[in-house]
Design a protein around this nucleic acid. Structure first.
Lengths: 291, 291
DNA sequence: CATATTATCTGACTTAAGTCAGGTAATTGC
DNA sequence: GCAATTACCTGACTTAAGTCAGATAATATG
């Protein structure tokens, strides 16, 4: 059989190298080498600290310096010494630079749009692209503490509730569940973690404290595109570590048998099943972990 | 909402450019620039005609010549004039070259293997990669005439039967269906077309002739990863064109209501529903098209 | 058979990217 | 306050990739 998993991965690699070559050329389409375009793009995205950009694009400091000089000569950016530390420099777009950056944005967007529009069911294609991107960049998924009312947090919660509604036999209505106050999931009472994969939220977990020794884990969710990457475990471990920092002694959580993979995760990571500790209508399984 | 379709496509592009850069470096891992490695790889894959390789990798003739000279100096390949046309040259691997090529193969395979193994459900990841690869390379999908007993044809038929078994309420058993003799789907009686996407069969259709004016369309199938690319229509159009060449006057086909997208395709491309013309147990809809 | 065409090669270039060894000025640590 | 460190810059280099104008030899065309 020539259609084994490995040749399928290699077919993907070939497809991507062949097409992304053409994709990169769009940057050259505006008569600027890729390196300069990438720096301009980073600055346009709001990165102003040169050291950060250099690190992100993994450029040599000499090369970086020359690229900046080039963009300056073109009148696209200006660099000034940092207020706090005059050794550092910060870069920002000029008006010309801003409009040039917008051109790149428009080009990239149009390209993405065209690619999607050619497909018969763009949703399926997007789902597949999300899975591949999350997997390729798995080592770059970062957990960030966010306010539960932050856009990214709300996005996760929306997806989470939607999934519960699909999975539970009788659907799911947030108002029937004990929806914890946002302030219980903010330091020093608790915390809300969002897993970000290159700008896209792909998972979350809430640690809901009461100020006392006991806290609850709530709203553990991982995006379908990011499953299989060990993200749930990572979110739980982080939440536990923060709980310890907050001098919490006992963690509790409730869950539902319609989510078997969750129960399995808890059992395998030191949680023990306990008796019902609330009268919430949805959960039918309860766990505890002593820190 | 910052998580719109377009930013998701762009996130994919970023992921791919970031990681495939690292992927390309594996070629440099053997101390040879990418260009030379790509040429060696093409020759290893069995491409011997220099003009073909040059065209495939879209290299300038001067550059190609230099790369070949380099590989020759390394003792990895040898080039000799073509038998038929002494202006052309053909390249082949030496023994050293063959083992060097194997090293690249082993590296690529190991890399693919590692990538898959890190994922919790490799099958889902592969499915997603197939979808993306098919979509990226949609313009490079070629329809090839193959013997219905050829490995790639059998692969398609296997997938096709498997899908029927899943979709039909009572399953599907090939032996109960009129399985046309392979020779009825070979010229001059008929033809069997396989859609190939970079080595992977992603669709098929059979034109089953009888030597007379009437022929049947059978076994139209498109891989899940290649749906939404208009491939079914393309397969049908090709089959019809070939039918005309074979001086066939009337085309018939049977299908099943469990395959609604198929019926819709036929209705939209000049087929008219007719009465049952066979006693096959599976189909419940019958179509005809006069050429 | 003369001429045009084709496939490949060679030499002389350019551009992009990157490396490396210092150099300068600001900041930090003791 | 002085030495070490840090952030950025400059100049001198290398390598990879690619372009372009001929040169050469074989083949096709009238």
């Amino acid at each position: 059989m020539t259609h084994d998993p490995i040749s399928r991965v290699r077919r993907f690699n070939r497809a991507v190298t062949a097409e992304v070559g053409a994709l990169d050329t769009s940057f050259l389409g505006r008569g600027r080498p890729l390196g300069a375009a990438r720096v301009l793009n980073a600055i346009g995205q709001g990165q102003s600290e040169i050291a950060v950009i250099r690190d992100y694009l993994s450029l040599d400091s000499g090369l970086m310096s020359r690229l900046l000089r080039g963009l300056e000569d073109e009148g696209l950016i200006e660099t000034v010494p940092d207020q706090q530390d005059a050794r550092r420099r910060v870069a920002r777009l000029t008006d010309t630079g801003r409009s040039e950056f917008q051109e790149y944005e428009a080009l990239s967007n149009a390209q993405a749009q065209t690619f999607l529009a050619r497909h018969g069911s763009p949703e399926d294609l997007l789902r597949a692209m999300d899975i591949v991107a999350s997997s390729l960049r798995r080592d770059h998924i970062v957990l960030e503490e966010k306010d539960p009312r932050h856009e990214d947090a709300l996005y996760c919660l929306g997806e989470y509730y939607g999934e519960l509604a699909r999975r539970f036999d009788n659907g799911f209505d947030v108002s029937l569940s004990r929806d914890p106050d946002a302030k219980d999931m903010i330091r020093q009472r608790g915390v809300f973690l969002v897993a970000m994969s290159d700008g896209l939220p792909v998972g979350c977990v809430g640690l809901k404290g009461s100020g006392g020794d006991i806290a609850e884990i709530k709203r553990l969710w991982v995006a379908p595109s990011a499953r299989g990457l060990g993200l749930a475990k990572r979110l739980m471990t982080s939440a536990e570590t923060i709980a310890r920092d907050l001098t919490i002694k006992i963690l509790r959580l409730d869950t539902n048998s319609a989510l078997p993979e969750a129960k399995q995760l808890y059992r395998g990571t030191g949680w023990t099943e306990i008796d019902r500790f609330n009268d919430d209508p949805y959960p039918d399984a309860f766990f505890e972990k002593r820190l």
